[in-house]
Design a protein around this nucleic acid. Structure first.
Length: 481
RNA sequence: GGUCCCGUCGUCUAACGGUUAGGACACCAGGUUUUCAUCCUGGCAACAGGGGUUCGAUUCCCCUCGGGAUCACCA
């Protein structure tokens, strides 16, 4: 049995969106599960669509997610990386070599037509309501290939191809799917169709995992494998992630976000990984939360769903909250760097951690941090409108509000602010003293201290604020009533 | 249009001929002496339709319908 080797082979044409990443994740998991290698290959043969900096984004994305690779583009130019180079543009000679093999076998020929002529053929076929097949126009005496024209593959045999797909199962397609496709473009670079077959073979890739858009091309690849006498790897075509609404493939237009956008929006890589992995996959149990290590142990292509799954952002949010909740405080502290509000970011590490501990359960994304914490670091502006629009509190006159706050001030002056229990009992005594119901009294004090729609519990809040600031805020609230 | 793939709650899914069709997200209701969140309890909700095969079909086969992919000198 050969060592498992999988690859992720993106083209540097833009940002990496979540659908691509799921495929990368699956390739990664198969490699790690089989104690094999995960290879990163940059498919940069399309010069027109090349986007500067896109490759860096790919690397960054994978690094952020923790999908470490064993061989990749950074090895180019060094002696490491036994199967490099890992940029296709640097592998031109390899493709030319195999192209010559095909020419030698009479299975490749120069395309004598201009693009306009081919377009003409296509139009004719369409007019005749027939599927266009280049092989119907195959030239009888093609010129010798000098590299200035496209080199086409000559399908050796028109037959039905059958193959096994690790996700889709047994598949087959008739000869209609076979045609003479271009191996080498007139710019001298190979097409994806040719390049990936050569590369996968030379790089000893054992599992080719990609999106289902490649199913239709499988017969072409298979005939190429046969012509080149390459052994077939394990193939896996998986369904696409669908847009949240509608049934279309998740794409740029549907608001598909790049992975880095999710990072910037405060999602944890663990949550992203967990979510992507469990989209269209489960281990057969009722487990929902999986760490990367668990995924490596449990993931198999056989359990990947055949149908497309929708990208349900609400589930992602939930999962992110789950992951945030189970983080160690120090870990969380490290990760929220950059997410604090203007006042929070200036606070001491100890101050930040104390606040984090209290809001951790409330965080769905790290980006929620400022709205949940700013009032701990800067004095909130009294907004009695909040009190007046409160169902319970609006029943009381303003004089009663201030009277209650004064009583609260009095009761708390003597309290021990180092103990949440002590604060709670002071509050309880106040409750008895004023004869108010908890929603009224506690609600009012909570507003006076935070002027926020939501906040942690009162004792926690007061403990964090300390005696001085608690009393000061009560006083400000009374003054501005 | 040709070729190919898919079809269980609103969403993600479990089930590999016999279950009150299970779980999770979302939603709704209640609980945890204030709010929000967490947490707990309960609720709502699905086998696309029609034929077969079988003692018995969500499960196997066929058809219909529905959805998707692909038909480039893009990957």
């Amino acid at each position: 049995m050969n060592k498992v080797r999988t690859r992720f082979a993106p083209s540097p044409t833009g940002y990496v969106h979540v659908g691509n990443v799921r495929t990368a994740l699956h390739s990664y998991l198969v490699a790690r599960h089989g104690k094999g290698d995960f290879v990163l290959r940059i498919e940069d043969t399309d010069q027109k669509r090349f986007v500067d900096g896109a490759e860096r984004v790919v690397l960054e994305t994978l690094q952020w997610l923790g999908l470490d690779w064993d061989e990749g583009p950074e090895l180019d130019g060094s002696e490491k990386g036994a199967y490099g180079p890992y940029h296709q543009t640097a592998r031109k000679e390899n493709y030319l070599k195999w192209a010559q093999v095909l020419i030698g076998k009479g299975l490749a020929y120069a395309d004598p037509y201009t693009p306009e002529q081919v377009e003409q053929f296509r139009a004719e076929a369409k007019a005749a309501k027939k599927a266009f097949l280049y092989r119907d126009y195959r030239p009888e005496n093609p010129p010798e290939w000098d590299g200035s024209r496209p080199l086409r593959f000559k399908v050796p045999e028109l037959k039905r191809y059958e193959w096994d797909d690790a996700v889709m199962g047994h598949l087959s397609a008739g000869p209609e799917a076979l045609d003479d496709f271009i191996l080498i473009k007139s710019d001298g670079l190979p097409t994806y169709n040719f390049a990936h077959v050569v590369d996968d073979h030379e790089m000893k890739i054992t599992h080719v995992i990609r999106g289902q858009e490649y199913i239709a091309s499988m017969p072409k690849y298979l005939s190429l494998y046969d012509a080149l006498e390459f052994e077939r790897p394990v193939f896996a075509c998986e369904a696409h992630i669908m847009a949240p609404d509608g049934n279309k493939k998740l794409g740029k237009r549907d608001g598909a976000k790049s992975v880095t956008e999710y990072r910037d929006a405060g999602y944890l890589p663990e949550a992203m990984l967990n979510f992507l992995a469990s989209l269209g996959w489960n281990d057969g149990t009722e487990q929902e939360i999986f760490s990367k290590e668990e995924l490596i142990e449990k993931f198999t292509l056989e359990r990947v769903q055949k149908s497309g799954a929708r990208f349900d952002e609400k589930r992602l949010v939930w999962m992110n909250g789950q992951w945030i909740k189970q983080l160690e405080l120090d870990d969380l502290y490290e990760r929220v760097h950059g997410f604090w509000g203007p006042a929070g970011q200036k606070a001491s590490a100890a101050g930040q951690k104390a606040v984090l501990a209290v809001v951790q359960d409330r965080l769905k994304t790290l980006a929620d941090l400022p709205s949940l914490t700013e009032y701990f670091f800067t004095e909130p502006k009294p907004n009695w409108q909040m009190v007046d629009s409160n169902k319970q509190l609006s029943k009381l006159p303003r004089t009663e509000h201030t009277k209650l706050l004064e009583q609260a001030t009095h009761a708390l002056e003597a309290a021990d602010f180092n103990s949440e229990e002590a604060l709670q009992s002071a509050l309880n005594e106040l409750l008895a003293e004023t004869g108010q119901k908890p929603p009224v009294l506690f609600g009012l004090v909570r507003f006076a201290l935070t002027w926020a729609q939501f906040s942690p519990g009162l004792p926690e809040t007061m403990h964090l604020l300390g005696r001085e600031r608690t009393l000061a805020r009560l006083q400000v609230a009374i003054d501005k009533a």
